[in-house]
Computed example of a mutant assay.
Amino acid sequence: MKKLFMGITFSIVLFLAACAPNFEQEDQIVHEKEEETNEKAIIPKYKISEDYYRTFMPFEPGEARGLVVNNLNTRYDIYEFETGLMRIAKNTFDTNKYVFREGQYLDSSTVISWLNRKYTKDQLKERDMEETENLGLNPVDPGGGDIDKRNEENPIYLAHILEHNYLEAVDGKEGTYKLGGVVIGLAMNSVHYYQKEAYGATYETKISHSELEQKGKEIAQEVVNRLRKMDELKNVPITIALFEQKTKSSIVPGNFFAFAEVGKGSSKINGWEKVNEGYVLFPSNTAENDHREDMTWFQNFKQDVEEYFPNFNGVVGTGFYLDDQLQSLSIDIPIQFYGKSEAIGFTQYVTGLVMEHFPGYVAVEVNVSSVYGQEALIVKNPNQDEPFVHVYQ
């Protein structure tokens, strides 16, 4: 299986990237569009890290921009769905050869129509719709009978569709760029929420992972078939990935669990590659049962923090796992301070604990906050002897 690479996305750390940045001026380039007049654009030469794509400029918002906020359950899922899709893309599209652009081929009306349920002939008639408009990828709700049974048997599987475009230099020479590939993310529901009446109570039915995986792969094939019918996408490579989003009450994000690559001109998905990644809350039963050693490190750190503030127990962490190995740990410590000197002293104390308790291969970020906002940031990159520490003024 191709290995996925996890890049830690800490904003401050962007200045600490191991590779030396290139500060040369931007390239003014021409973006080739089929059957359209060429347009000028800027591709920045400066890269903050090898983990990130350069971005097509001026920035072109995605045609379906904004829908993700309404379709995904939590802000954690929204963030992870997009950044995780970029991690998937790196399996196919090299960050040194391709330039990122938000999706330009699936507009809002298309995405909305694909996210609908499929309609029966009678339902189409009621809505004054033609069969050509019956594009929903979610199952039919036949109506009538027991509403709970209907929703249990025909849940909404597909929550959202996200498109990313990757541009490549024509003939390998920078100066003129063309579409080099498309990456599609399909966000699948682990829980289907529904109402029996407008503005009434919300009910839910759980969807097993095996069921949403099966349905996701079926939907993915249909999405690829539809993309191939678009003139601009007939011959470009397509990568499509499946994301399982968490419940509305979750405080950790969902994760991608499978992806497939479809070669130029092909419409058939021949096989899927498993993605073994996910997020774990610390402390939690999941961490205790499945990652006991990591839980021990975290609990020792937490106990030492509480020695500084004996009545405090608010240390919470989120760990990212790839192939069952802890890659990064983000820790939040909300504290009530009575002065800046106290905040500085506490930050120094916590920095020592970070270096003492966590293994060198794990990236750690600690955010210290108070009722007044962010107080300090501590960042330790893998195998880094000295962490980065910033106390906010």
Rank of each mutant, 00 (worst) to 15 (best):
Q28D: 14
E26K: 12
H31E: 13
P44V: 04
H31W: 15
K47W: 02
E39R: 12
I43T: 00
F23P: 13
Y46P: 00
E24Y: 10
I43V: 09
E50M: 08
D27H: 09
I42L: 08
H31M: 11
T55L: 03
Q25C: 04
T37W: 09
S49N: 06
P61A: 03
P44L: 06
N38P: 08
Y52Q: 04
F59V: 00
Y46R: 15
Q25A: 15
N22T: 09
E24G: 15
R54C: 00
Q25E: 15
D51N: 09
N38K: 12
I29E: 10
D51M: 07
P58V: 02
I48Y: 11
F56M: 10
Y46W: 07
H31L: 13
K33C: 06
A41C: 08
A41I: 00
E50L: 09
P61Y: 01
E26V: 03
E24A: 15
E36K: 14
I43E: 00
K33T: 05
K33E: 08
I43W: 00
D51W: 11
A41Y: 02
H31G: 02
E50N: 12
P44F: 05
Q25L: 13
K33V: 03
E36W: 05
E36L: 07
M57Y: 14
E34W: 14
E50H: 07
E34P: 07
P61E: 01
D51T: 11
V30N: 11
E36F: 06
K33H: 12
K47L: 05
E35W: 08
T55A: 01
F23L: 15
S49E: 01
Y46K: 14
T37V: 10
Q28G: 08
E60H: 07
E60D: 01
M57I: 00
P61H: 02
K40I: 11
V30G: 09
